[in-house]
Simulated assay, not measured.
Amino acid sequence: MDPGDVEYEPVSVKVVLVEMKDTAELLIDLAYSAVLHGSDEVAAEVLELEERMDVLQLQARMSLLMAARSTEDAERLAPVLGVVGAAEKISDAAGDIAKVVLEDIGVPEAMRAAIPEAVETVVRGRVAPDSDYAGTSLGGCNLETDTGVRVIAIRRAGDWIVNPDRDTALSADDVVLLRGTERAIGPVYETVTGDAYDPPAPVDSTIDDLDRAVDSIVLMKNMSELAVDLAYGSVLFDSQGVAAEVVELEAEVDALKSRFEAWVLRAAGRVEDPISLRGLVHLASATEVISDAALEISEGVLRGLDTHPVVAAAVEESDEVIVRVGVGADGRLADASLGDLEVKTATGMRVIAVRRGGGDWVVSPGPETVVHPGDVLIAKGTRAGADRLADLAGDA
C-alpha cells in the first residue's frame, strides 16, 4: 500500500489502536534484532512495518477528528491522540535503529555481544522441515508454557503474522522471531531450526569508557521497553501510581543518555576510528525517543484525564495483555519468590512491577523478588497465561 493514497474510511479506532500497539512492540524487537544479527533483511522489514504504521496513525487521527463534536469530546479524545502519536514515535525510532544496519553506520562488536544481556533476547530462525514444531500449533506444543520462550512473529510467504496465538501452527520454512531469556532460548532455537544456537561471543574490550557506553545503551533499552509496558498499564488501570513510575523511568533514561554521551566522547580519543561510534549515538538517541513516547502514553493519566474506554479496550485486546493480579494469603505465591515458582516458565507471564501492600512499587522485579499477601502484580503475557498467574497467586 502506498501511504500517500490514504483516504478516510470508517474504521474502528479500537481495532486500529490494537494493531498500532502490537506493531510498535514488534518494531522494537525487530529493530534490535537487526542490530544484534547485522541483518539487512530484518532491518528492511522494520521499514516496511514503519510504513504500515504511518497508514494506521492517519486512519486513527481521521476517525478521532470525525468523532469530536464538542469540547467534552475533545477533552476525552485528546489522550487518545497522545497514544496514537506515541506509537508513531516508537515506530520512527525503530526505523532509525534499523537504518544503523541498512546504512552500514556500524556499531562496535561489543554492542552486538551486549544486547543479549538485556532482560530478554530476540532471535530469528527458520523452521526446519523435520523440526518437532513443524505442523504443530503453538498451543499444541506448549512452547511458551514449557520453555518460557514465545513466538512473537512469523514471516510466511513474504507476510508477517504479528500476533500468533495458541491456534497458530508453525509450518516448514516459516521464519520465526523467538523471544526469551538467553538461557532458555538456545534449546528452543535448536529444536526449531535444527542448527546449533550461536549467540554473539563476548568481546573483550580494552577501553573501559566504551564498555560503559555500551552497558548504558543496554540499560536504556530495558528501561524504555519497561516504560512502554508500564505506560499502557497505567492507561488500562487508570493508575497514577504506575504512571509516576513511567516518569521516573523516563528521567533515568535521560540521565543515562547524558552519561553515555560523556563516555562516548572520552572513548573517541582511544579508538582507531572514532566515526565507528556513530552507530552507538544513533541507538542511544532512538532509545531515548522510545522512553519519551512512553511518557506521552501515560500523560492523560498523569494530568487527571479519564482514560477513554477505547484505549483501555485496545490494550486489553492486543496481542499481549497487561493484567493486575492480587496475591492471596492462600496462593502458592504468597511469601515466595518469583524464581522459586518459576513464574515466567510456569505461566508465560512476565511480571513487570509489584505494588506492595503499603503502596511502594518494585519495578522490573527479578527471580529473587519475594511477593507477599496483599501485593499486586502487574504482568504482561497471553490471556491463557494471565489465568495461570491468577491461579498461582490465589487471586479471587
Results as ranks from 00 to 15, higher is better:
2 D>Q: 06
3 P>I: 01
7 E>I: 14
11 V>D: 09
18 V>P: 03
18 V>H: 00
19 E>V: 13
23 T>H: 09
27 L>Q: 11
30 L>V: 07
31 A>K: 09
35 V>M: 03
36 L>C: 12
37 H>N: 12
41 E>Q: 14
44 A>Y: 10
52 R>C: 10
62 M>N: 11
63 S>M: 11
68 A>C: 12
71 T>C: 03
79 P>A: 02
83 V>T: 09
88 E>V: 04
89 K>I: 09
91 S>Y: 06
99 K>P: 07
103 E>Y: 08
105 I>C: 00
117 E>F: 10
118 A>W: 03
120 E>L: 13
129 P>I: 03
136 T>D: 06
139 G>V: 00
141 C>T: 09
147 T>I: 00
148 G>N: 01
152 I>A: 00
153 A>W: 02
155 R>T: 13
157 A>T: 11
158 G>K: 03
158 G>A: 06
160 W>F: 15
161 I>M: 05
165 D>N: 14
166 R>L: 04
166 R>C: 10
178 L>H: 07
181 T>C: 07
184 A>C: 02
185 I>R: 09
187 P>V: 01
188 V>A: 04
195 D>R: 13
196 A>Y: 10
213 A>K: 02
215 D>F: 12
215 D>P: 03
217 I>F: 08
220 M>N: 11
223 M>H: 14
227 A>K: 08
230 L>N: 11
230 L>T: 05
230 L>C: 04
236 L>E: 04
238 D>S: 15
241 G>Q: 14
248 E>S: 09
250 E>H: 15
252 E>K: 14
255 A>H: 11
258 S>K: 11
260 F>K: 04
261 E>K: 06
272 E>S: 10
279 G>D: 07
280 L>F: 05
286 A>R: 04
290 I>K: 04
292 D>N: 14
299 E>H: 10
299 E>S: 15
300 G>R: 01
302 L>E: 12
308 H>W: 00
313 A>V: 06
317 E>S: 15
322 I>N: 08
327 V>K: 02
327 V>P: 00
330 D>E: 13
330 D>A: 14
330 D>K: 11
333 L>D: 01
347 T>Y: 01
348 G>T: 05
353 A>T: 09
358 G>M: 02
360 D>H: 06
362 V>G: 02
363 V>Y: 08
366 G>Q: 04
379 A>D: 04
395 D>T: 12
